[in-house]
Design a protein around this nucleic acid. Structure first.
Length: 123
DNA sequence: GGTGCGGCTGCAG
DNA sequence: GCTGCAGCCGCAC
């Protein structure tokens, strides 16, 4: 369907749409179980945002410090931590991951083991 | 409506 | 396996 609403309505819908995208992102992010991790791209795709991986990263960076969302379970493709050690968020992410049993080695995580949608090799 | 900017991603050297 | 480069998407001037 291709509706053509008036400017005012259109603008209103646009605003609503933007918020909907963020909401979808938050909902999807909240679905990630403890001890599991995913990538910005994967999160974006699952949230229905397509390849808006970078946008996801930006949104996560804008999250408040008191957020309950597991933003620390989101990293670069292949389980690579995009946040550098030494930064508040970077250190926080490592600390939280470790607290959940996720071993962070050399700025990387074993997605084979902790990947959200990755099949675990029991052995 | 064109331009720049990300906590990105995949490919090539 | 790390570094460099181009591609993509959505958002803010």
């Amino acid at each position: 369907m291709t509706p053509q609403p008036a400017d005012a309505l259109h603008s209103d819908l646009r605003t609503s749409d933007a918020e909907a995208r963020r909401a979808a992102l938050y909902l999807t992010l909240a679905q990630i179980p403890e001890g599991k991790v995913t990538s910005y791209g994967e999160l974006a795709a699952v949230a229905g945002l397509g390849r808006a991986a970078r946008w996801v990263g930006r949104v996560l960076s804008q999250l408040p410090d008191d957020t309950r969302l597991p933003w620390h379970r989101v990293m670069g493709a292949g389980g690579r931590l995009s946040l550098a050690a030494g930064t508040l968020s970077g250190d926080e992410q490592r600390a939280r991951l470790r607290a959940e049993g996720v071993r962070v080695i050399n700025d990387r995580v074993d997605i084979r083991r902790h990947g959200w949608h990755s099949a675990e090799h029991s052995g």
